[in-house]
Design a protein around this nucleic acid. Structure first.
Lengths: 227, 227
DNA sequence: ATAACAATTCGGCCGCGACCGAACCGTGAC
DNA sequence: GTCACGGTTCGGTCGCGGCCGAATTGTTAT
């Protein structure tokens, strides 16, 4: 496979729409993806088999449904980096500011970690607390951070054993600032879900902060998450 | 701009070819790029103006020539991440192993740092020497590394002041291992050029290791670079 | 067994966009 | 001035690929 092939796979509006919807890491059925892209199921089927053959998507049969998800972190990273380029020179265009867009900018999932205002606030807060250092090097957890994460119920040592990148700054396309990705980013997001501080909004990447989450973020990280 | 637009820009064979040729960070004329892509100048002109309008390329007039280069590191990172996806599922295909391919795999420039066997060897050597730590976190320079880099004529402190990512592991598409990118990667490459240890091969991304470079790499980093 | 539904395959339509030939600008050389 | 050359603009051709309707396969429900 070469650059142009990958490009043209992403370069179709319908396919790009599907990939974007899969960017939160979930698996969706062929029908759902067709609906997302605004095309008929038979057209979507063609697109999906192309994407799968090319190794961008993984498929899993389940009864009469077929679930598709991004094939790997590598693919997610590629799509992210493409979105960053998209965002670069769309600086102050007056966008129609739909409710969904606003929610997306506020908090969303980014494959397996958190992005948007929430993601950036968390990165800021953890930096302010001296738990992580994203600024100078790729991203590391301080000794103090080890303690804080442990208190918060996250086992850093088991995260460090994973094969994937441990702690990576990931450029946020809406905020133009870094949030936390990598194993630590995922661990943090998982813990917030477990605590019931955040929850997914049906059929989208949008993340909602629950009332208890609002409290928790305030007391634990001194984050005032706007309503 | 949206994902599909970026994708389709890269998704054309001719344009992808041009972008690939620009990936070493140099600026090329419209004519050279047309030749690279194997198309007529008038067709290339159309492609180039599209890429420029989209913000992927920057253009500079010089006499009757027009020089094009990648607009930013962001764009280069995107193209790299796309190439990584390309390489993923082309595992052991018997490629025609041209001389150029072999040279490219051995040592090449990757926007502003080094890649290929040489890039990976350097990353390995510096890790072995305890100068850097790419494995666990995003990438950091140890105290010992500070000294080593300084002895080698690289001023780490001035690199750290730059706005860009300081030290980043970058997945090598040919070797499937990490090499050093970011400010440190660039600093290292620049220093090797200055020392005359490596030099560019005309009209390509290929890097040649000079005889004195072979000696230097051997004595300084214990790297045996194959001929 | 029959029906309902998810998904795919096939066939044909249609439009976008890549391509080149020709003509046209602008710069540099003489 | 004229000529040469790099680059762009315009116009027209052509083919690839996305799209849907219809028919098919396969699975679950009743």
């Amino acid at each position: 496979m070469n650059l142009a092939e990958v490009g043209s796979l992403v370069g179709d509006v319908a396919r790009a729409q599907m990939l974007t919807h899969l960017l939160d890491g979930r698996a969706l059925t062929a029908g759902e993806l067709a609906w997302c892209a605004g095309i008929t199921p038979q057209t979507a089927s063609g697109h999906l088999s192309k994407l799968q053959k090319a190794g961008l998507l993984a498929m899993e049969k389940q009864g009469r449904h077929r679930y598709f998800r991004l094939a790997s972190l590598t693919v997610a990273n590629m799509l992210e980096s493409m979105q960053v380029v998209c965002a670069v020179d769309t600086p102050r265009r007056i966008r129609p500011e739909s409710r969904m867009d606003q929610d997306m900018r506020m908090a969303r999932s980014c494959y397996d970690h958190l992005a948007g205002v929430l993601g950036v606030s968390l990165a800021d807060a953890l930096t302010r607390l001296g738990a992580i250092d994203l600024s100078s090097d790729g991203g590391m957890i301080t000794d103090k951070g080890h303690g804080l994460f442990h208190e918060f119920g996250i086992d850093i040592d088991s995260l460090a054993k994973q094969k994937r990148c441990f702690c990576r700054p990931c450029l946020d396309w809406s905020e133009r600032r870094h949030h936390i990705a990598g194993a630590v980013g995922k661990g943090l997001a998982d813990r917030l879900f477990d605590l019931g501080w955040i929850e997914r909004v049906r059929d989208s990447r949008v993340i909602r902060v629950t009332p208890s989450g609002r409290d928790g973020l305030k007391t634990t990280f001194a984050i005032d998450h706007p309503d």
